[in-house]
C-alpha cells in the first residue's frame, strides 16, 4: 500500500488528501453525510475483482446505502444490464462542472451533495477532476475508490492490488449489511 500518486509524475503540491486505509472510515464518512453521491466511470465495468466486475461491488454499495448514482460515459448501459435502474447518466465533465457550483441543487433538485465517491475512471482524468473540485469547490468531500491513490481527492484508497481492493469491498459490504 502506498500513498504516492499511482501515476508517478502526478504530484499535486502542498494540499493532499488523506489515505483511506479502512472501510470503517468510509462508512463513517457516509454516516456523516447528508446527501452522498456515487459517480461511476466506464472502467468499473472493465476491471475484474475476483470473479466479479468492480461495477458489481459499486452497485451493491449504492444499494446498501441508498446512494444516488451518476454513471458517466456509456456506463449507464452496464448498470441497466445489471438490473440497476436507479442511476442518472451524465458526462464526467458535466457532473464535475455541476459539483463545483455551490448553488446546484443536485440531480433530483433536492439539495447539494456533500460527499462524492468516484470509481472506475482513467487515473489521469479523475486526477484532474479531483483537482478541479479541490480548488473550485473546497466545501465538497471527494473520495476515490479506485485503489490508485488520488492525491487531489479529500480521501482516497491507496495504491492496492485488485485482490486488496476486492477485500476492501467485501469487507465494506459485509459491514454495511450488518448495519
Amino acid at each position: 500500500m502506498s500513498t504516492t500518486p499511482w501515476q508517478t509524475a502526478e504530484i499535486p503540491g502542498p494540499k493532499r488528501g488523506l489515505p483511506l486505509h479502512r472501510c470503517e472510515t468510509l462508512i463513517s464518512l457516509l454516516n456523516n453525510s447528508k446527501n452522498p453521491l456515487l459517480i461511476i466511470g466506464h472502467k468499473a465495468a472493465e476491471i475484474d475483482l475476483g470473479n466479479r466486475k468492480f461495477i458489481d461491488y459499486l452497485i451493491d454499495l449504492a444499494r446498501g446505502r441508498t446512494i444516488t448514482v451518476v454513471a458517466t460515459a456509456h456506463t449507464i448501459k452496464e448498470l441497466t444490464n445489471r438490473g440497476f435502474q436507479n442511476a442518472s447518466s451524465m458526462p464526467l465533465m458535466d457532473i464535475a462542472n455541476r459539483l463545483r457550483d455551490t448553488e446546484w441543487r443536485g440531480i433530483d433538485g433536492k439539495g447539494a451533495y456533500d460527499v462524492v465517491l468516484f470509481a472506475g475512471f482513467p487515473y489521469y482524468m479523475a486526477w484532474l477532476v479531483f483537482s478541479g473540485l479541490k480548488h473550485m469547490s473546497s466545501q465538497l468531500k471527494t473520495i476515490s475508490l479506485d485503489g490508485q491513490y488520488q492525491p487531489n481527492a479529500s480521501w482516497s484508497i491507496q495504491n492496492v492490488s485488485p485482490l486488496e481492493l476486492e477485500k476492501f469491498f467485501v469487507n465494506l459490504l459485509e459491514k454495511i449489511g450488518e448495519m
Partner: peptide, 23 residues
C-alpha cells in the same frame, strides 16, 4: 471555464513559488 489545475502552485517568477490552493 471550468479549471482543473495541474498543480497547486505557481512558480512563474522568483516571488514564488506560491501556493494558490484554497482560494
Amino acid at each position: 471555464p471550468f479549471y482543473m489545475p495541474f498543480c497547486d502552485l505557481c512558480c512563474l517568477c522568483t516571488f514564488g513559488k506560491c501556493d494558490l490552493s484554497d482560494g
